[in-house]
Design a binder for these strands. Structure first.
Lengths: 343, 343
DNA sequence: GTGAAAGCGCTAACAA
DNA sequence: TTGTTAGCGCTTTCAC
């Protein structure tokens, strides 16, 4: 069932039927009713391709998801973010098209998306400090919004981010309050904007308290489970090992647990660890100290909001870019002691 | 830069240019060279919408991802599956469009996808025992492939699945070999096909050894962390509690760990647990017993293969449906004792 | 308030 | 081997 068939059935022109369906004012109320009824009855769905060819808008948003080159893995938070974004798109009548790439900088991917005309806008994931994609997209004039930020990019653009710096500042402060003086930082790759900011928060918290920053206690690598395991194992062997760890998400927590276990220590007793995990409400009665930089549901909400920002930008091309900063939750569990593992 | 511009530039008709670009045989080699060079030079990209309007094929595959209604969460394995599928699509020139729905049975979603003509095929995720979507898709004539199976659906269709039954049979057998007689099963919702099969494997293993199947030791719910925690806590309070647990993935392992910890027991010492987790190669020197029903990389490979099957089906509409069964890996770690926790 | 006709960018008969 | 033409299904001037 296409427009032609439907209008023939109604004894109207395609024009009128199209207008009736798209809410144009010049069509009479009676006609609109008839058309709507018929469309419903025959469950008419306008062909997206034809529509977008005619209008020039594709009613689709592209997400370019970077895949870790070495480890070929997808960051699990994308799932939740995408779910939120998908909701917003569905509500606004947009489709979501996904493109997974090894090297997210592949200029071609973005240029092609634009040239092939199958998206009206793009969500940029996992930005680096000076991410070239932003200038690129501005250059080719494709609307976009960034999940995160690229701190070294001076021009304004749409972004939505979690306040990574303050989250890590507070978390470090919390460990310092417990009396810890040697705190291991397990961070992601610090070319990534979020990791850079997290480190800044950690460093600033230490400096504020006059604690020396020890490079031996700071690691920055791709967030694999094995990295977490190895890093903790190695730090444990230092002459003066950390008494606490601050673990950047999403480094899988299980590697940390195991390393601590291997060292013959008990988490939350011999050693303090602040990490991230989802749905840990009952942890509040446990002995861990979880840091929620972003819960699953808040990531979802972020997806929703960023999608809305982008859709808004597409609808109002002239509008000034919007930004949104989420303050990360820091939820603290009951520790086995007030001063766990601190010397 | 569109076909018209490009052909004008070359002093050729749109037809010739189109043919040259699409590898039709009748165009002369010299012309083809010229056209290719020009297309490259001006980085011409045919407009996907126009192309698919003309051809009737949209060169896109739809993935309809169910979201847990109660918990609004996305199964993290989708990320890896999608990554694999994305690879295959990219290689074949297809786009991937994602649609996240609360109720995956929403017939409308599928019908609309077809009617709106923006996908040439669909991947069905998370099938239930008698999943109505299969009949629906066959009815509307939209090519599809299922990630998993719907055992109660008799007609042939494309699917790719992990051998869930044998995996759980072997895992249960392994625990029985250790001497366990009371094995708790934490399963997903058994309306889901994979969970049903897993249970069947568990039950069959017990029956083969003449061990009574105790309903009190079998749980089936949505795979949240809290469910895992609660279920284990409750089973622990039984007069004759399990000495081992078999945990269906992706029930977050952390809930299980905590419940066992709360009960004052030590995993791999007082109690045996077979669960699933990724990238646990070093676990082989640990005290856990991991069951790999599907590693992250094998999920990825599954995505790749299922995508290929679907693309093949789209290209050869008459072809008989293809199926593929992956045998799950069962990797066993070193236990602290040969007979951990068994009575 | 409604309709005829052109055109979005491409492909695919049909001619030449 | 190349070009002419019609049309994919829709929107959108423009005319009535």
């Amino acid at each position: 069932m296409n427009l032609k068939d439907l209008s023939a059935l109604l004894g109207l022109s395609q024009t009128t039927v199209s207008r009736a369906l798209n809410g144009y004012p010049e069509v009479s109320e009676a006609t609109r009713q008839r058309v709507a009824a018929a469309a419903e009855k025959y469950s008419y769905r306008p062909n997206t391709r034809a529509k977008s060819l005619a209008t020039g808008r594709s009613m689709a948003i592209g997400h370019v998801i970077p895949i870790s080159a070495q480890h070929e893995m997808v960051n699990p938070v994308f799932g939740d973010f995408i779910a939120g974004a998908g909701e917003a798109y569905a509500a606004a009548g947009y489709d979501m098209v996904l493109s997974l790439v090894q090297d997210s900088h592949e200029e071609r991917v973005y240029r092609d998306m634009f040239a092939k005309g199958n998206v009206d806008g793009i969500v940029v994931h996992a930005p680096e400090m000076h991410d070239p994609r932003i200038a690129l997209l501005q250059d080719i004039g494709l609307p976009f919004a960034v999940h995160g930020r690229a701190s070294d990019v001076p021009t304004p653009y749409n972004w939505l981010d979690v306040n990574n710096k303050s989250a890590f500042q507070r978390a470090t402060g919390f460990l310092l309050d417990l009396g810890h003086k040697r705190i291991g930082l397990l961070n992601g790759l610090e070319t990534m904007d979020f990791a850079h900011r997290r480190r800044a928060g950690y460093v600033e918290a230490l400096q504020t308290r006059g604690i020396a920053v020890d490079k031996a206690l700071m690691r920055s690598e791709e967030m694999t489970e094995n990295y977490g395991y190895q890093a903790v194992c190695e730090m444990m062997k230092l002459p003066d090992p950390p008494t606490a760890y601050l673990v950047s998400s999403m480094i899988p927590a299980i590697g940390i647990r195991r390393a601590i276990h291997d060292a013959g220590l008990k988490m939350g007793q011999d050693i303090s660890v602040i990490t991230h995990d989802d749905d840990l409400s009952y942890l509040r009665n446990g002995d861990d100290v979880p840091l929620f930089t972003a819960t699953r549901s808040s990531v979802r909400e972020a997806g929703r909001q960023l999608a809305r920002i982008l859709i808004d930008q597409i609808s109002n091309p002239g509008k000034v870019p919007q930004t949104k900063l989420f303050e990360a939750e820091l939820t603290v569990g009951r520790s086995t002691g007030p001063n766990v593992g601190a010397r």
